[in-house]
Design a protein around this nucleic acid. Structure first.
Lengths: 329, 329
DNA sequence: ACCGTTATCGATAACGTTTTCGCAACCCGG
DNA sequence: CCGGGTTGCGAAAACGTTATCGATAACGGT
């Protein structure tokens, strides 16, 4: 645990000023060839690496882009993979950040904490309405954009949800429950709309008792799911607003002695890697999550280059992938 | 894109000095109740959030722990999930960092870049030999620790690999290929040893022609796999040193018109979420990756609290999970 | 009325960088 | 030799915080 070696140490050892060392590091004009190589050598010897923190405090450019997430779960980590792939050859580095206790409004908090700077631009992955003003370019993935509006990347939640519901209807199901995300999340609302639209289009009644909030998370989904199963006229199928709650739903059903899909069909949304591995493998609406992340950084990089990108809103298509968790009634 | 609001703005607006504002923010002793609430209020109004960068430059404590990875791929993102879970109620935030072009030696580079500070401690996820000295507490997951030695967390690669190979042998396979990781990675070496040991224990010859380097990655695995299939006496089973190359191996085999597992059995290592979703679902050695991440931060948190933890090396057990990619000869 | 505490606050020096700008020293043509 | 343009370098001011420490005010006891 020796002291960190700073630019001052290098300067001293090379018998030049810190200013000169800085110039060498950043390849600036105005330092003699000889001096430069000498400094380089000292840097090498001392194993010096400039402090990201100090550097960014001063210069406000870091060549790091930040991905701000509420939480590391399957969805956001998929985004990360996509983002990483897209950023790889652009000369930027990637920093993913999440706070411990991320109550609402974390978007603004994180952005202000990091954009002082530390990051030159940010990808905000949030399913909620975001209306914050930032000092750096920001691209949001998934959100409903508020009035101020960043560029956004999302997928077609409405049609995706419709197709999931139609799939269930096509299988002969009539009582189809919906496990919603939180009502303040735009994606959740859209998925619910898709669900309702499909029901109505098929001339089926929408029974409000079959619609429950599951919050997109595993634990909070269990209660509502149990209630659904306890209903006198219980549903024969459930469409969950995301894979995590769909998987939880299957677990609850199985724990209650039901067979999936024989006694109950389940379909999810997202197609996270976990979905295919669930038992039974989950039928779900695939959104190309990694591409979501990739498109977001592509957009962001364009912004960082100072371009005004042609399109400020990328929407990706979803596809239904049929696996083992759904069956005809 | 308005200017960032700094502590000075708050001070001005509240008609106090920046010092006082700082004290209020950090809840330090020595500021009157009245002043404190007034400052709080201004902070609220202005939407001020202190800059992580400036704060850490000065105070050298940030309550952020960093996870440094070479790349965001399925394995490291699983670690992330586990780490996130473990850190959640400790009052720390999490920052995952990866550089773009991470040649060898990235461990030292990243550590010095970030530990200036920005992070109070780091989890290094690297499968390679690491021998760097750090200014902050560091826990390594997976590595072979060099002489200086941090605390480490890993899983029992040797026995895991043995059991995978024994599984194949038990199925009647005799010509079993091994798709290795890079030879400089300790985990890869251990897995290879396990493979050899199992073969020898069963009285089977080890044919060096059946051992190829696949580098733990998808693309680099394809070539060696093709070569294996082109062998005059081609193997009837392959044990890949990780899931990613195992999945790539299945794809190559299928593209070559082979059926898995009928014509070729494949077993992987890791059990990333993608493994269960592959076609066919991959038989693999599960290491509890999320727990690896969780144990690492637990250890790190203890270190940060100044404790000398009892055990400096945590080793987790692996288990073979049988799925569809292996069958009797 | 005086002194010693205690409470409250603010100037100011760091932290490790980058950047601006001025100052030398040098070069070259006249 | 002399003036004007380069070139190479360093001093010093930022960046937004926190920590130290001294100053001031208020107060209680005698």
């Amino acid at each position: 645990m020796t002291r960190r070696v700073t630019i001052t140490d290098v300067a001293r050892a090379a018998e030049v000023s810190v200013a000169t060392v800085s110039k060498v590091i950043n390849g600036r004009y105005g330092v003699a060839q000889a001096t430069s190589t000498r400094v380089q050598q000292v840097i090498e010897e001392l194993g010096y690496e400039s402090s990201l923190v100090a550097r960014s405090l001063r210069s406000h450019r870091t060549h790091v882009i930040g991905i701000l997430v509420a939480e590391f779960e399957p969805f956001s980590t998929e985004i990360l993979k996509g983002a990483a792939a897209a950023v790889s050859d652009a000369g930027y580095e990637l920093l993913a950040y999440t706070g411990a206790s991320s109550g609402s409004g974390w978007e603004r908090r994180y952005l202000s904490r990091l954009s002082g700077t530390l990051i030159d631009g940010a990808v905000l992955v949030t399913p909620s309405v975001v209306d914050v003003e930032a000092q750096i370019p920001v691209v949001a993935v998934d959100p409903h954009t508020g009035p101020t509006g960043f560029p956004t990347v999302d997928s077609d939640n409405l049609t995706g949800a419709r197709s999931a519901t139609e799939h269930l209807i096509g299988l002969g199901h009539r009582r189809i429950a919906f496990l919603a995300g939180r009502p303040d999340l735009e994606s959740s609302r859209l998925r619910e709309s898709g669900y309702r639209e499909a029901l109505i289009a098929a001339g089926l009644p929408v029974d409000e008792a079959l619609i429950r909030v599951a919050d997109y998370r595993s634990e909070p989904a269990r209660g509502p799911m149990s209630e659904l199963l306890a209903l006198p006229d219980r549903p024969t199928a459930v469409f969950a607003a995301n894979d995590i709650s769909a998987i939880a739903a299957m677990e609850v059903a199985q724990a209650a002695g039901l067979q999936v899909p024989e006694d109950l069909s389940v379909v999810g949304f997202d197609d996270v890697p976990e979905a295919a591995g669930a038992t039974p493998p989950l039928t779900t609406v695939r959104q190309p999550i990694q591409r979501l992340g990739a498109e977001a950084v592509t957009l962001l990089l364009a912004l960082l280059r100072g371009e005004r990108p042609a399109t400020t809103h990328v929407r990706l298509d979803t596809t239904l992938v049929r696996r083992g968790s759904t069956a005809a009634r």
